[in-house]
Amino acid sequence: MSAKLRILLVATAAVALSACGTRNTGIESIHQPVVQRSDYAFDVAAADNGLTAEETDRLAGWMSSLRLGYGDRIAVDANTGANAAVRDTVSALAARYGLLVSDEVPYTAGQIAPGTARVVVSRMRASVPNCPDHSRVSGIEYEGNTNSNYGCAVNSNLASMIARPEDLVRGQPGAPTSDPAAAFKAIDTYRKAPSTGAGGLKAESTKGGN
């Protein structure tokens, strides 16, 4: 086999390999965080005055097994007259984890039996599918594609660090009002600070020492 033929075969193989794998010809990475929500439901027997001590202990054990934390949402769906009392008990248990009971109750499968209440915990998780992605061989790029792994590190770190994954889907609304004094405080402090070069340069001597 001649040298020219070998070079041609190697170049052809390189072009074929570069055409395989994930394509991304835009500026934005195609590897974006995906938010998934899971709902966990727990039915408890509700008396006229709320939950009994036994049901409260069962509910507390269930919450502990879920390892509730910041970002989880708790809601109460009850069709009994003791809805307010049940909500107060659930609120007290949720307060142990620094959580509040939400007014919005997500849809869950199955009907709630008479005389029972359903406690629903909604949990969201963010992840970046198909990362890391080394499906595209690095080399000469004839179609303007970025590396197949482009964006995996940044977006995976963002998905891991965000406290409320739902904020990636719908951000938090801003405050309807603002305090001009608070906004001006940082600017005023910066303006009143003395300049770092106001005192001149410090004189150093090369004399002395060993």
Score class of each variant (00 low, 15 high):
Pro180Ser: 12
Ala19Asp: 07
Leu99Ser: 03
Val105Phe: 00
Ser160Phe: 06
Pro106Gln: 07
Thr52Ile: 01
Ser102Pro: 01
Pro165Arg: 06
His31Leu: 13
Val121Tyr: 00
Ala46His: 09
Ala92Thr: 11
Ala13Met: 12
Ile162Asp: 01
Ala60Gly: 11
Thr25Trp: 00
Gln172Thr: 15
Ala45Tyr: 01
Asp88Met: 08
Arg6Thr: 04
Asp88Trp: 02
Asp77Thr: 08
Asn145Val: 03
Gln32Val: 12
Gly26Arg: 14
Gly71Cys: 05
Ala14Cys: 14
His134Asn: 06
Leu158His: 04
Gly139Tyr: 08
Phe184Pro: 00
Arg136Thr: 08
Thr89His: 12
Gly209Ser: 07
Ser65Pro: 04
Ala78Asn: 14
Gly21Ser: 10
Ser122Gln: 12
Trp62Gly: 05
Asn149Ser: 13
Ile7Asn: 11
Asn157Ser: 15
Pro33Ile: 04
Thr25Phe: 00
Asn79Gly: 10
Ala117Glu: 07
Gly115Met: 01
Ala47Tyr: 01
Lys4Arg: 13
Gly144Trp: 07
Asp133His: 11
Asn130Val: 06
Gly115Arg: 02
Asn24Leu: 00
Asp39Glu: 09
Ser160Gln: 14
Ala11Ile: 08
Ala163Trp: 00
Met124Asp: 14
Leu5Asn: 07
Ala85Arg: 10
Arg164Met: 08
Gly197Cys: 10
Lys4Cys: 06
Ile187Met: 11
Trp62Ser: 10
Lys207Glu: 11
Tyr107Asn: 10
Lys202Asp: 08
Asp77Gly: 12
Ile27Lys: 09
Asp48Ala: 14
Ala41Gly: 06
Tyr40Phe: 14
Pro33Ser: 09
Glu104Ser: 05
Gly98Trp: 08
Gly197Asn: 13
Glu54Gln: 13
Glu55Lys: 10
Pro129Val: 11
Val90Glu: 09
Gln32Leu: 08
Gly115Phe: 02
Ala182Gln: 08
Ala95Trp: 05
Leu158Val: 03
Leu99Ile: 08
Thr25Cys: 01
Gly26His: 02
Cys20Tyr: 04
Ala163Asn: 09
Leu100Ala: 11
Thr108Phe: 04
Lys207Ser: 13
Asp72Gly: 10
Gly115Trp: 03
Ser195Asn: 15
Ile27Ala: 15
Ala182Ile: 10
Asn79Cys: 02
Ser148His: 13
Ala45Arg: 12
Thr89Ala: 15
Val121Ile: 15
